[in-house]
């Protein structure tokens, strides 16, 4: 074969591969979306629409290494423009947790999860988004800033206020930070 590998279909092999990667990011996006709105149907719609948009304009992505940032950015824009008016209903949908093997630990854990979710649901959208992007999605400050289209300084100040507020809310619920984190059991 005279054609060097990878050049046969020019950019289209790349496009196809990116489209596959976009679809593979679905669960990750869903986790973020759900943490923003606490409603599985809305989160699913949000992810669906995000993927559709991403697939249709995949050629506008310049830097492949930033695929996840780019996707989350699309989702953040959609959320801001179309989905934000829906307030999260905290305290719902906590039943569907997958617990640990030990029943007692499982109860503790689902309580902890429920309370954490409730506390996060009480934050304002801005703080909640920053916190979830940094802590749950593990984006850097710089990536979070470009996803939300705000300066890095704003990310930092929102983050610190969000965490302060979270700790207040959790303490009100009687969850002292130190004693509730379940120790990871040896595998």
């Amino acid at each position: 074969m005279t054609t060097p590998k990878g050049t046969l279909f020019g950019n289209f092999g790349r496009k196809r591969r990116l489209q596959r990667e976009i679809c593979a990011g679905r669960d990750r996006l869903y986790r973020i979306a759900w943490s923003w709105c606490h409603d599985s149907d809305i989160a699913d719609d949000l992810v669906q629409e995000t993927l559709a948009r991403a697939l249709s304009k995949v050629e506008t992505l310049r830097d492949e290494a930033r695929l996840q940032v780019w996707l989350t950015q699309i989702m953040a824009n959609l959320y801001r423009d179309q989905f934000r008016r829906v307030r999260p209903e905290t305290g719902l949908e906590v039943d569907a947790l997958t617990g640990a093997d030990d029943p007692e630990q499982s109860v503790n854990r689902s309580q902890l999860v429920a309370r954490t979710r409730e506390a996060l649901g009480r934050l304002g959208d801005d703080q909640r988004q920053v916190l979830t992007l940094v802590d749950i999605a593990e984006f850097s400050y710089a990536d979070t800033a470009s996803i939300l289209d705000v300066p890095v300084g704003t990310v930092m100040s929102r983050l610190s206020r969000a965490r302060r507020r979270m700790r207040e809310l959790l303490e009100q619920q009687g969850i002292g930070c130190a004693d509730v984190i379940p120790l990871r059991r040896p595998q």
């Binding site: 599985s40 039943d95 947790l97 954490t116 916190l131 802590d135 979270m166």
Partner: peptide, 20 residues
Amino acid sequence: ELGQLKAQLRLAYASPPPPR
């Protein structure tokens, strides 16, 4: 404490309810 909060959040959102 902040480290724990981070871990706690990650745990709380590790497996959100699937879309119904």
